[in-house]
């Protein structure tokens, strides 16, 4: 260990590790500590007594927590496949030979939704899906579809939220998958094109192995992102109508910063973290492993 600590590599890496410990691990440990205590910020007189696993027990028996988590999973398994599908389609289009100028323009414009702040995306969504003045109803009206109550109807509000998420995050999938496609050796791809006219077969047997690492990254990052999706929902629907768009992060924020029950909110966040780690491990095990084959 002492010999290793003398190597330049150790000292180059040490600052990053220390920074990660400080900004990544320390808050998690603090959250775990809080989760074992009764800790309500708005009741300072009550102190911060140790309660063991009581908060975790509350989480596990809280129907609202599980229904919010269920809603989040529904959101995840609906939005992310759509984003990957459209993203892959766009990436394949941009990967086609020629059109280099268009490709450059497209790559730049793909960054715009990604660079837009979540809260602003929510506000844009609120305007787009406004029942009276929104462009969504206006455009649907051109093809004779009657006025839809997007944000006042539980199902449609959920759909509207997914549409905004797809708008914001499909470009991310496109860019990652496009990077994967650019890794495919040109000779192999050209040879495959001579072998078969089927783009699907080329995708499956030639391009897919290069796409899987990116796909794993997309799954991990988007899962983590959906699990902590808050700003957009808060500005667009505030979790409503009813609880229709109350994803898990909105619920945790409500417990943590409305009720200020930081002990319970921390326990919820820790359970969510475990859930996220398990999902990430599953992605790596089943998707990334396939890439190694």
């Amino acid at each position: 260990m002492s010999s290793r600590s003398n190597t330049p590599a150790f000292w180059f890496i040490a600052p990053s590790v220390i920074a990660l410990l400080a900004i990544g691990l320390a808050p998690i440990l603090f959250a775990v500590f809080n989760s074992l205590h009764e800790y309500n910020l708005a009741r300072p007189a009550a102190g911060k007594p140790f309660v063991g696993l009581e908060n975790y027990l509350t989480v596990l028996t809280d129907g609202t927590f599980w229904s919010s988590l269920g809603r989040t999973v529904t959101f995840l398994v609906t939005a992310v496949p759509i984003q990957i599908a459209i993203g892959l389609w766009a990436a394949l289009l941009l990967h086609r030979p020629g059109l280099s100028f268009m490709r450059s323009v497209a790559r730049v414009s793909l960054v715009i939704p990604l660079a837009t702040t979540y809260a602003v995306v929510g506000l844009i969504g609120r305007l787009i899906f406004n029942r009276e003045f929104g462009v969504a109803n206006d455009m649907l009206g051109w093809v004779g579809i009657p006025v839809t109550d997007w944000l006042g109807d539980p199902t449609m509000a959920f759909v509207a939220l997914i549409i905004m998420d797809v708008w914001q995050w499909t470009p991310f999938c496109t860019l990652i998958l496009l990077a994967g496609l650019s890794m495919v050796p040109k000779e192999t791809e050209e040879a495959a094109r001579l072998e078969t006219p089927s783009a699907l077969r080329i995708l499956r047997h030639v391009q897919m192995p290069f796409l899987l690492p990116g796909l794993t990254a997309i799954l991990i990052l988007r899962t983590a992102d959906v699990l902590k999706e808050f700003d957009k929902i808060f500005t667009m629907t505030r979790g409503g109508p009813g609880a229709a768009t109350e994803l898990i992060s909105v619920y945790i924020q409500r417990v943590g910063f409305r009720v200020f029950d930081l002990g319970l909110a921390s326990a919820q966040a820790v359970v969510l973290l475990v859930f996220c780690i398990v999902l990430s491990r599953l992605y790596i095990r089943y998707v990334y492993k396939e890439a190694e084959l």
Partner: peptide, 21 residues
């Protein structure tokens, strides 16, 4: 009341009157 009233905040209610809806 207009459909979607459960999504009306102050701004929407005031606008609905201000715009004659």
């Amino acid at each position: 009341m207009p459909p979607g009233i459960v999504d009306y905040d102050h701004a929407e209610a005031v606008d609905a009157l201000a715009q004659g809806q």
